[in-house]
Design a protein around this nucleic acid. Structure first.
Lengths: 430, 430
DNA sequence: AAAGTAAATGAATCAGTAA
DNA sequence: GTTACTGATTCATTTACTT
């Protein structure tokens, strides 16, 4: 069979693996957290418990050094090892790896960064883990992956060919006419060592209830850059078997080892019927969720608020509450009338016991010349553009009135205008 | 003087710093790269050379241990140290820090991640550096920073209050009618330990040609979370002095030390006239790369106007004229006061025989609580954000007045509020 | 009118942290 | 130990829209 699973301590089992037969090792060893971890699966039928209690860090270091040495022995000449650590003790493992593989075979510190549930910690919210990549020799296998250029990159510049000037600095090449010279095809930016991959979600179908389960995408990427189909992958702390599931899906062979019988059974069943939940976030991108309009946010700049996505009726919520309820803000879009915008806001506001829904009016309806019905139930606030056009209109009318009806004295319209001007508290102009 | 700079080896100079007098230490020590670094500044007038040649890592460890120990001695009980490392040797420094400060005082591994130009090496593109944060004791100073919620977050749910069910699992609270119960103010998401800050743009004015120069935003954030104004900041390897420039701008005191006379001179001149190139990339996010001027235009969207570039006093001219002259519009910038903006506009208006200069007010000065002097000669128009904060403030005052002084009848404040509310034509609230 | 699809939104949980 | 807080994510369900 392509994928094998064995119950036991890897320090025993690895001795029977043929030296040089493994192309890539991925380890997710126990962390040095000095805590007991406990988790139930979804239907509460099983509880998984494991300890990260080591007493002192020397014991932990010895435990790891022995096993990492055995992993090294299994590796082929072109092979690589990826060791997953958490930020509290990565230096202990890193020091061991430096000694075993040599500083010159350190390839990368991969940062797996993710967003996740916040907590009340005083300090920064931990949201990354480290993966150390060492190769057995300097001639290691590596498959390049390229990504698109960043949005702010000047694509014209990328396409220009470069050369070195007299001082050895890089400059853009020009031909005899002083024109820029275009470069050959550019494939994109090489994969960076910081990987933003969403944390495996509590609700993901992929999740099997086993603690420490890694997103399959993380393992797919590691397998992708370091192995080819048919290569052999080893995971000596395989847990619920994500590494082997990924290897199986990508047509690699492999061996998974774990001390827990339950873990191995779980891994076996996952390999037989792999579930790989597709992530909307990764597939469609973060922007697909973004509904809070960027222009709308600019209008609200300076306010202390939280932008709201995934809600058509609301653009933002003030951080400050009002009368026990949230303050909801909506900006009128260019294509919608004031009453449409108001209805949309009101509908959302009703469910949230909001006592102060605020609508920002950005334009007038064309059919309503002098006044517009103020929508019921929302507070309407004008944008700067609204105020300006109102002001100019009124003052222009006033000037024209002065010219044409100077003898008639105050008309009704003029009285309205005067009041409007007073309200604006503008300086006396005429 | 608030900021002091000294030439010399910090192992000598630190001995004369009073123990417990330093609130925060930031170090960007020489890396253990085994290479000689050489860099010229822009006009090639100066060459900076510094060595990272250590022979063996024990020498490097000794060098660092001695100096880190001295830094620890300077720190106050609430103080913190931030040590900047690169991924090739972070474990050496980390191990020393664990011994000196204790594992229990490890606070965070901060990942500074950035995008940068690709090189051709085989492997992953290095695009992060590590900063280790240790505190002297467990009662450390920390100022919280909150960011917006993720685009994929369901804010409706976030606003609900929660409790525990029989199994101790978290559930959403409901009142006796089965309705959801809303929670108090939501501030946002605590700052994560992965910071994406653009690498200093090679063309940025901030760059002075000194190697390993860090973006000032990075230092500002470290200073922000760990110190208050008036606190004392120490940088024993200050180089071109970014730490001290940031400390100076943020009204902290500080001491910078460097072995190089040139570096100290450079740092001195930077502190005397700090240039802070603000990174558009960071302020507006990678995906909305636009300038402050463009933001001003968004505020004016819907008006029929011609944008004006490269004129400090004017942002736009209405296509419509007023009383034979142009209508000039200026948007108050976030860093300028209303009167500054007004003067700037007036100066430009005079040359253009403008009879209607309009100023858009985007924020209040903090010292002016209730009213601000209206500048003479210009029309002031409020932005939507201004109107909203005014509205919420007034209504909140009204609600509170109702509760506390219900029997007193109309107070002066209430009358003002009522008038304001009438003007807004909002719906009757109470 | 019924069926099928797309979009909106409601719900559940965690190698968390602190008092 | 026990209890209270936390928000990003995907799954589930409901609503809206199209054919």
């Amino acid at each position: 069979m392509a994928i094998k699973l064995q119950v036991g301590d890897c320090s025993d089992i690895l001795k029977s693996v043929e030296p040089g037969s493994v192309d890539m090792v991925y380890l997710d060893p126990p962390f040095f957290t000095e805590k007991r971890h406990r988790l139930r699966n979804r239907d509460r039928s099983q509880e998984f418990v494991f300890d990260d209690l080591w007493g002192c860090h020397k014991k932990y270091a010895e435990f790891m050094a022995l096993r990492l040495k055995l992993c090294r022995d299994c590796l082929s000449e072109e092979g690589s090892i990826f060791v997953h650590c958490d930020p509290t003790a990565n230096h202990i493992i890193r020091t061991i790896l430096d000694e075993l593989f040599g500083r010159e075979n350190f390839r990368s510190e991969i940062i797996w960064s993710y967003k996740r549930w916040s907590n009340s910690k005083s300090g920064l919210l931990p949201s990354h883990q480290n993966i150390y990549w060492y190769s057995k020799t300097s001639s290691f296998k590596f498959n390049r992956i390229f990504n698109g250029y960043s949005e702010s990159t000047n694509i014209d510049q990328i396409l220009q060919r470069r050369s070195r000037d007299a001082h050895g600095k890089s400059i853009y090449q020009r031909d005899e006419n002083g024109e820029v010279v275009l470069d050959d095809d550019k494939v994109g930016v090489p994969l960076s060592d910081v990987w933003e991959i969403p944390y495996l979600n509590p609700k993901a179908k992929e999740r099997v209830g086993y603690p420490t389960q890694k997103p399959i995408l993380l393992l797919e990427r590691i397998i992708e850059i370091s192995t080819d189909p048919g290569d052999f992958v080893l995971d000596p702390f395989c847990g619920s078997g994500t590494t082997l599931v990924a290897a199986h899906l990508m047509k690699r062979d492999g061996l998974g080892i774990d001390v827990s019988q339950e873990a191995i059974e779980l891994a076996q069943s996952r390999i037989e019927s792999p579930i790989r939940s597709k992530s909307n976030l990764l597939e469609k991108g973060r922007d697909s969720y973004r509904t809070a309009d960027k222009n709308a946010m600019v209008l609200l700049e300076g306010l202390d608020l939280n932008p709201v996505h995934r809600n058509k009726g609301i653009d933002a919520i003030l951080k400050q509450t009002f009368d026990g309820g949230p303050v909801l803000i909506r900006v009128q879009r260019s294509h919608e009338s004031l009453s449409e915008a108001a209805n949309s806001l009101l509908k959302a506001a009703r469910k949230k016991s909001c006592k102060l829904p605020i609508l920002v009016k950005t334009h007038s309806d064309h059919d309503a010349l002098f006044s517009e019905d103020t929508p019921e139930g929302v507070y309407v606030v004008g944008s700067a553009a609204m105020e300006i056009s109102g002001l100019v209109e009124k003052l222009t009318a006033k000037v024209q009135n002065k010219q044409h009806f100077a003898v008639h004295g105050n008309t009704a319209a003029e009285l309205i205008i005067q009041r409007a001007v007073q309200l604006k508290k503008g300086p006396s102009l005429l």
